[in-house]
Design a protein around this nucleic acid. Structure first.
Lengths: 152, 152
DNA sequence: TACATTTGCATCGTGCACGATATTAATGAC
DNA sequence: GTCATTAATATCGTGCACGATGCAAATGTA
């Protein structure tokens, strides 16, 4: 059989793509209770850890551009999860602060990671496998981010 | 530091999400030459391997639903990459066939996987690591697909 | 053979992603 | 100080994803 490389089953990118979608889907029931989506949950995690970041600082942490984040933050502001204010020091920057409602969701989110990992850990995959996978993906992210920068 | 689990850096789902987006982005320059997107490339790969599948058979291979695939296939038909015809045996089914144009793209796509893997393989990550990662993700996909089915 | 159920596909609405482009503020060069 | 350049966001258009819903063909059941 020729063209083995063009077979879906021999590709590594397709499993990453599918796993990403399925994981987002697995999060959905938990996040739905909180009235948020997975990308919104990511924004909240960033702000729970470090409130008062600029839009640009959030883009760097989530590896998303402003053309994705601006409308997303706008929706979250409308949902009263956060405020957006121009920085007085640099009028170009927009600083994002959590509202009380946004802060309070943290308590509700606390059990989510453990619930997810419970689904994923099986007799075939243990925690050290997961950590190894995380490290490997982070190395790829480093490479791909670098590669992307060089194309511009 | 409490709430370590809610820190972005300690999550494994976020690297999968980011890596997926970055990989799609890395594919883009190659696919742009062919005038297609990554999901369209996936459909082509499925059909190159096995032409004349029904929409349902494609959804099973790509783990996508018809509400994603129907418009996608419609766009690809408009681009003259494939034809969609109702099955005469089962009038509910739609059978998808590649056009000559769609078939011919295979030659152009042949070098893509190798180019991508060249970017990803480094001194820190070798081919057996990649295969291990692929196997692990496929196991997760199996679990998550099962988990998703149980919720319905 | 009626009729409820299931199956295969499509449509609709919403929310990402992201390239391209625009806008305004800050910075740099002279 | 003037003007080009850069930086920080925002907007627009297009293409996914996906839950919810609709619809017609096939299947199952009494």
């Amino acid at each position: 059989m020729e063209d083995v490389q063009l077979k879906l089953s021999s590709q590594v990118c397709f499993p990453i793509y599918s796993a990403s979608r399925l994981i987002t889907k697995a999060y959905r029931p938990y996040l739905e209770e909180m009235g948020i989506t997975y990308p919104q949950y990511l924004v909240l995690m960033v702000l729970w850890e470090n409130d008062g970041l600029t839009v640009n600082q959030i883009t760097e942490k989530l590896l998303l551009n402003t053309n994705t984040l601006s409308p997303l933050l706008k929706r979250m502001e409308k949902m009263e999860l956060l405020h957006r204010n121009r920085s007085s020091e640099d009028e170009r920057s927009v600083i994002v602060h959590l509202t009380e409602k946004g802060k309070n969701l943290k308590a509700q989110a606390r059990p989510i990671p453990e619930n997810l990992i419970k689904i994923l850990l099986t007799e075939n995959i243990n925690l050290s496998d997961v950590i190894q996978l995380k490290d490997m993906l982070n190395e790829w992210i480093r490479i791909l981010t670098e590669n992307d920068k060089n194309l511009k």
